[in-house]
Amino acid sequence: MSNVIDGAVTALRAKLGDGFDGSAKFHILDEGCIVADGAGVREADEETDVTLSADRETFEAMLAGELDPSSAFMSGRLKIEGDMGAAMKLGAALSG
């Protein structure tokens, strides 16, 4: 596991607690993928309800609370594929 993925898994666990109602994949470009679901948060590349893709800097800024996920999406820095309802729930959890 890369340091970037390891740090992101730790940060997502802190924000999401025991897991996420639904399933989401975070694709950090040039680094790897993380899945969050009812089983928790882990490094994985699986099919999920929604996939969020961005570069490392964008994910780090969102996880640090420096960039609102909605703003990242609206500015084109964050790409979302799949269930927009799940993405909105996830965005609210990340913003909190």
Rank of each mutant, 00 (worst) to 15 (best):
residue 15 K to P: 01
residue 67 L to H: 08
residue 28 I to T: 06
residue 10 T to H: 10
residue 72 A to R: 09
residue 29 L to H: 10
residue 58 T to D: 11
residue 14 A to Y: 00
residue 50 V to E: 07
residue 50 V to N: 08
residue 66 E to I: 03
residue 12 L to Y: 00
residue 58 T to E: 11
residue 44 A to E: 07
residue 55 D to F: 07
residue 61 A to H: 09
residue 27 H to E: 08
residue 16 L to S: 04
residue 30 D to P: 01
residue 26 F to M: 12
residue 64 A to K: 14
residue 27 H to T: 04
residue 52 L to N: 06
residue 36 A to K: 00
residue 9 V to P: 04
residue 27 H to R: 05
residue 14 A to D: 06
residue 60 E to G: 06
residue 68 D to C: 10
residue 9 V to F: 09
residue 8 A to C: 14
residue 10 T to V: 12
residue 38 G to P: 02
residue 33 C to P: 02
residue 26 F to H: 08
residue 43 E to A: 15
residue 52 L to M: 15
residue 24 A to E: 01
residue 16 L to F: 03
residue 62 M to H: 06
residue 67 L to F: 10
residue 61 A to M: 10
residue 17 G to W: 02
residue 35 V to K: 06
residue 49 D to L: 03
residue 25 K to M: 14
residue 8 A to W: 05
residue 51 T to G: 06
residue 24 A to V: 11
residue 21 D to A: 15
residue 61 A to K: 15
residue 71 S to H: 10
residue 16 L to I: 05
residue 13 R to K: 15
residue 52 L to R: 06
residue 9 V to K: 04
residue 40 G to W: 00
residue 63 L to N: 12
residue 46 E to D: 15
residue 65 G to S: 13
residue 39 A to D: 14
residue 25 K to I: 05
residue 30 D to W: 11
residue 71 S to N: 11
residue 68 D to K: 07
residue 43 E to S: 12
residue 42 R to W: 06
residue 12 L to G: 04
residue 52 L to Y: 03
residue 29 L to S: 12
residue 19 G to Q: 01
residue 15 K to N: 06
residue 17 G to P: 05
residue 18 D to Y: 01
residue 42 R to I: 08
residue 27 H to A: 05
residue 33 C to E: 12
residue 35 V to T: 13
residue 7 G to H: 08
residue 45 D to M: 11
residue 11 A to K: 03
residue 32 G to F: 10
residue 51 T to I: 14
residue 25 K to P: 00
residue 19 G to Y: 00
residue 23 S to H: 07
residue 56 R to W: 00
residue 72 A to F: 11
residue 60 E to R: 11
residue 32 G to V: 11
residue 25 K to N: 05
residue 25 K to T: 14
residue 11 A to L: 02
residue 23 S to M: 07
residue 37 D to I: 03
residue 21 D to K: 15
residue 50 V to I: 07
residue 23 S to Y: 07
residue 38 G to T: 09
residue 43 E to G: 06
residue 67 L to A: 09
residue 48 T to S: 03
residue 69 P to C: 14
residue 14 A to N: 03
residue 50 V to A: 13
residue 17 G to H: 03
residue 62 M to C: 09
residue 61 A to D: 14
residue 67 L to M: 14
residue 71 S to A: 15
residue 31 E to D: 10
residue 40 G to F: 01
residue 56 R to Q: 12
residue 64 A to I: 08
residue 72 A to G: 11
residue 19 G to L: 00
residue 28 I to A: 04
residue 38 G to H: 03
residue 44 A to W: 02
residue 55 D to C: 07
residue 71 S to D: 14
residue 70 S to E: 13
residue 64 A to P: 04
residue 51 T to E: 15
residue 17 G to C: 05
residue 26 F to A: 12
residue 44 A to Y: 02
residue 30 D to F: 07
residue 18 D to L: 02
residue 67 L to R: 13
residue 54 A to D: 08
residue 30 D to T: 08
residue 18 D to N: 08
residue 40 G to D: 00
residue 41 V to N: 00
residue 39 A to F: 03
residue 18 D to T: 08
residue 16 L to V: 04
residue 70 S to P: 00
residue 28 I to L: 05
residue 9 V to I: 14
residue 40 G to C: 00
residue 37 D to T: 05
residue 27 H to C: 01
residue 49 D to P: 01
residue 21 D to S: 14
